[in-house]
Simulated scan of single mutants.
Amino acid sequence: MARISGVDLPKKKRIEYGLTYIFGIGLHTSRLILNATGISYDKRVYELSEDEVAAIRNEIQDKYSVEGDLRKSVAMDIKALMDLGSYRGLRHRRGLPVRGQKTKTNARTRKGKKKTVGGKAK
């Protein structure tokens, strides 16, 4: 089993899709990494040799910010917006949609379970 950046990649998937299980690597980035290391997209994760896994691991370490470091930087960016008091920061702080979506009828994912006001609660 290949373990890269603290993530166990699924054995039976093709490597181009297996790499996308790492936070910060999508399909495009995965293909760029494989091109740089000279590994075929069609190989399965369990077919990789130790040298190929090491090559992928080195490529990711040298050129990309992934997993913990990326999560930390995203959290710091959001915290900076909140500290500035910008509109986006206020929306983050209140737990509302940040990117201009309407909130009258939708946005249940961000707002949470309905809070019934007046009338009978179901």
Rank of each mutant, 00 (worst) to 15 (best):
V7R: 11
K115Y: 00
S65R: 14
E50Q: 06
Y87W: 10
V45P: 02
G100W: 07
S73F: 07
A36R: 15
R31T: 14
Y17K: 12
K79G: 00
A107I: 09
L19F: 13
Y41D: 04
L19T: 04
K120G: 01
T109W: 04
P10E: 02
A2L: 11
E47Y: 02
L9G: 08
R71L: 12
A121Y: 00
N106A: 12
Y46P: 00
K102M: 07
G6N: 12
G118W: 00
K104H: 12
N106H: 14
E50T: 01
G95S: 10
S30C: 04
L32V: 04
L81K: 14
L90W: 03
V53R: 12
K79S: 04
S5F: 15
G112F: 02
K122R: 13
L96G: 05
K79H: 08
T37A: 11
I56P: 12
Q101A: 14
N58A: 15
S40T: 09
G85Q: 07
M82R: 04
R3H: 10
L90N: 13
G95K: 03
K120F: 00
L70T: 00
K72I: 01
G85M: 06
K79N: 06
R31P: 10
K115E: 01
I39S: 06
T116I: 09
S5T: 02
Y41T: 01
G6H: 14
K13W: 14
R88P: 03
L81N: 09
G112C: 03
L27R: 14
V74D: 00
S86P: 05
K63H: 14
R31A: 14
A121C: 07
V45L: 08
A107S: 14
F23M: 01
Q61V: 09
R71P: 01
K114H: 02
S49Q: 08
I39M: 09
K63R: 13
L81C: 07
L19A: 09
Y41H: 04
R88G: 09
T109A: 11
K13S: 13
D8A: 13
K72L: 05
D83Q: 01
G89F: 08
R99S: 05
H92V: 08
S5N: 10
V45W: 05
I33V: 13
I15P: 02
H92M: 04
A107V: 08
I60R: 10
K122T: 07
T109H: 10
N106E: 05
L19R: 11
L34I: 01
I4L: 14
A55Y: 04
M1V: 06
K43E: 02
G118R: 08
A80K: 15
K122C: 06
V53P: 05
D77I: 10
I33A: 11
E59P: 10
V74A: 00
A107L: 06
E67Y: 10
G112S: 03
G89N: 03
M76T: 05
Y64A: 03
K115P: 00
K79Y: 04
R57H: 12
K102H: 06
T103R: 11
K102C: 02
I25P: 07
R99L: 10
D8K: 15
K114S: 02
A121G: 11
T109V: 06
T29Q: 03
V98P: 01
V45H: 03
Y87M: 12
A2P: 15
S30D: 03
I33N: 03
Y41A: 01
D69P: 00
R93I: 01
S5P: 03
V117M: 05
R108K: 15
K114T: 04
H92G: 09
Q101H: 12
Q101Y: 12
L32Q: 15
G18H: 06
Y17H: 10
L27A: 07
